[in-house]
């Protein structure tokens, strides 16, 4: 029981970060970006290359782990570089593709994002190959936090605990950005009413750029977290796309805390479904959650009725 809870929170952390980026993009750019999952994949792979670069530059080529974790400071540096590069990739994609379609139909943008996702996924396979990658080959022994006779016990690795904690720190940071800074208020204002935002003096194009940067950077961090607790594969982001949408819709499109809560609920639902339906049906759980939300509360937990 406790183990399923922990597993759900770990998966939920990755989903939550990706879903926050998705919900931000949707509320400000006004289209469902099917490329969000690919930003996660690109973030994870760019961190692989950035890590090789950092290790080569610092000499030795060996990463000394920090404390109980399986990785050293070099991976943190690589993650920051990957988030920056993924944000630049998103800006490039906007400049090449979405900017030209912004004044048209939202469906056009959605279909364009499908195409972009397909191109990005294949480009990953072309550049990095199809074999799984890892940030470190260090073997981490999970810690027994709760004995087996208490609710089935709980074992968790320091890396997994760090991913959950870091997710909460990133989300709180984003919350402070949105509520305490001019950029955050401008983003919320633009999400509600772009025309009024322009009249009030908001440079909506700058807000759009900031949204791409933040959404892509969050996706990249989520991708790196997924790589830390699992393996890095070209389908990493694609496989998480449905849970991302389920989380964003469950939370209520446009709500950051809703997306976070939705991410954890989808993660927990996937985890708790394993002993009931078997691991092979785990991925289908997100489908069930999505269908249930659309039937029972289409506006999501924190969404406003139109």
């Amino acid at each position: 029981m406790l183990q399923l809870l922990a597993d759900g929170l770990i998966v939920g952390s990755v989903i939550a970060l990706g879903a926050v980026g998705l919900t931000l993009t949707y509320s400000i750019l006004r289209f469902a970006n099917f490329g969000q999952g690919e930003f996660m994949t690109w973030g994870a792979y760019l961190a692989v290359s950035a890590l090789s670069f950092v290790l080569a530059m610092t000499g030795g080529g060996v990463m000394e782990p920090i404390g109980p974790f399986s990785f050293g400071w070099q991976l943190i540096a690589a993650m920051i570089m990957a988030a920056t590069l993924t944000a630049l990739l998103a800006l490039l994609l906007d400049w090449l593709l979405f900017r030209r379609l912004r004044h048209g139909n939202a469906i056009t943008l959605v279909i364009a994002s499908f195409g972009a996702a397909l191109a990005l996924r294949n480009l990953v396979q072309f550049l990095w190959g199809t074999l799984p990658e890892y940030y470190t080959r260090e073997i981490q022994i999970s810690l027994r936090l709760v004995p087996r006779d208490v609710m089935g016990g709980l074992r968790i690795t320091p890396d997994q605990m760090l991913v959950i904690a870091m997710t909460m720190i990133v989300v709180i940071g984003l919350h402070l950005l949105l509520t305490r800074t001019t950029l955050g208020r401008a983003m919320r204002a633009t999400a509600l009413n772009p025309a009024l935002a322009r009249v009030a003096g908001v440079d909506v194009n700058a807000v759009v750029r900031a949204t791409w940067i933040i959404g892509a950077a969050l996706a990249a961090i989520a991708g790196v977290f997924a790589g830390i607790v699992g393996q890095i594969r070209p389908m990493l982001g694609f496989d998480l796309l449905l849970p991302l949408f389920a989380a964003a819709i469950l939370g209520g499109i446009g709500s950051v805390w809703g997306a976070v809560l939705g991410g954890f609920i989808v993660g927990l639902a996937e985890s708790f479904s394993v002993p009931i339906f078997g691991a092979e049906y785990r991925a289908a759980t997100a489908f069930l959650v999505l269908i249930a939300i659309l039937l029972l509360r289409p506006t999501g937990l924190f969404g406003e009725k139109p």
Binding site: R185, A186, A189, L192, N193, L196, V199
Partner: peptide, 25 residues
């Protein structure tokens, strides 16, 4: 300019509406 309808940011507080305008100019 004050538009006819939807002329305040309903998802922001009264103070946030004014702070946003003040910070941008």
């Amino acid at each position: 300019f004050v538009p006819q309808t939807e002329n305040v940011f309903t998802n922001l507080s009264v103070l946030e509406n004014l702070l946003l305008a003040a910070a941008l100019v």
